[in-house]
Design a protein around this nucleic acid. Structure first.
Lengths: 243, 243
DNA sequence: GTCTATAGCGGGATAGAC
DNA sequence: GTCTATCCCGCTATAGAC
């Protein structure tokens, strides 16, 4: 705690950032520092795919995503991850060099899944789609990963601001990409006259994303099936944005 | 970490809960457990108000609210609070019996400020106001406390889910009250035909609140003055909800 | 690969001086 | 009222057996 009072430095923190730079160095950082063991390519025991080692690694990441979601960065203990992943805490060090590297990979995977899923959904849209079609498609896709597919995604988005600088920096690149995507969607909407001109574009974009990002906090399958929830979101956004 | 996978138990966790009970035992819990020192009523030194002791206590709470906002529950260290409040960590124990009691009071004060501010705003509305007028008034008021007035408010709302059970339970009462308020606002809107009937009322309410609750994550005075931001929010909600 | 045991440190809390 | 010194526990990380 060195910084004084006030608000966090970088403005569009967390998911959508305003910086337009969309640097291309993609596979920048995986768990840096020598990975210690990492399972051998060939699994002598079972003739199956990746061997159980890879699966264990994934169990650890899955568990970490869940814990991160519930307890936040500082509250994510190796012991909790281990319990969920059904092993002892020190075993984690066979797969990752440190606690932070586990968390790092969770948030990186999470954000990339969001990006990939939303891009894929947009790409699948028919050619004649309007700007608003594309925005609503992104709304659906964002809710789908965050609520249905990926605990990683919501962990990455909702706890981004808490992360220590080293992890945060790696994240920032992908955050900017995702922010840029949404900014483009909205700009296109404004240009096409499909979005009301009396809205502040940045604020409108962030209110929409905020509504979506907050959903993991309250949504559950039983209370209302996902399709219904998504359709309410789409109606809200459609009517909210259009002139 | 004992609970298995899945989602958090209580559904409408965090701010708006669905339970309709609006129990009336208001001043239920202040920091329980004997308060240790607590400044003497009469300040012998200065002829002024509450004496500096009360001010120190407040500095501690102010600092705790800021730290809680940035680092989450588990990341809120007494040393960080102390640094911001400009004293040494052990001095906190003169005013509070434990770290959790500090946090407890922050979130309690925070949520009550939200409740008080929104209620006051609604009460100040002219008599002929429509249901939608009232909803938009609540939107403005919620953004005002969360963005302008109170670091306590956003700390209480955004980190509610991370809190350990004992603190959470106390919070829950006020959360339910606030949730009930919004539910009523929306039900009135539906009843008056001012809200589209093709929206799932609960989802719509939570999406709106989510948009507002997420705002502290991205808003800052420089990027766009508060009144403009609020007015964009009001337009979004107005158009989003109405038939 | 996964375990038990343990080193080492950070952070909450207490004692007691001033 | 606020400080310094200190206790002690919990957590990350390492050592080394199996």
């Amino acid at each position: 705690m060195t910084e004084a009072r006030g608000r966090v430095g970088a403005a569009d923190a967390v998911v959508p950032s305003d910086t337009s730079g969309d640097t291309d160095r993609a596979a920048s950082a995986r768990p840096r520092g020598r990975r210690r063991g990492g399972p051998s390519r060939f699994d002598p025991e079972s003739s199956r795919e990746e061997g159980k080692a890879a699966k264990t690694r994934e169990r650890i990441l899955d568990a970490a995503a869940v814990v991160l979601n519930r307890k936040g960065y500082a509250g994510t203990r190796l012991a909790d991850i281990a319990e969920l992943a059904q092993l002892q805490a020190p075993a984690i060090y066979y797969y990752f060099p440190s606690r932070d590297e586990v968390i790092q990979e969770v948030v990186q995977v999470g954000l990339r899944r969001v990006l990939a899923h939303v891009r894929a959904a947009l790409a699948a849209l028919p050619d004649g789609s309007t700007a608003m079609d594309r925005i609503l498609c992104a709304v659906s896709a964002h809710l789908e990963i965050v609520l249905r597919d990926s605990e990683y995604a919501s962990a990455a988005i909702r706890h981004a601001a808490e992360l220590p600088a080293p992890i945060r920096e790696v994240q920032l690149l992908d955050e900017r990409r995702y922010g840029a995507l949404w900014r483009t969607l909205m700009e296109d909407g404004v240009a096409a006259g499909e979005i009301s001109s009396d809205l502040d574009p940045r604020a409108a974009r962030m209110f929409v994303l905020g509504a979506l990002n907050w959903a993991p906090e309250w949504w559950s399958e039983e209370r209302g099936p996902l399709p219904e929830t998504i359709s309410t979101a789409r109606r809200l956004v459609l009517r909210g944005l259009r002139p």
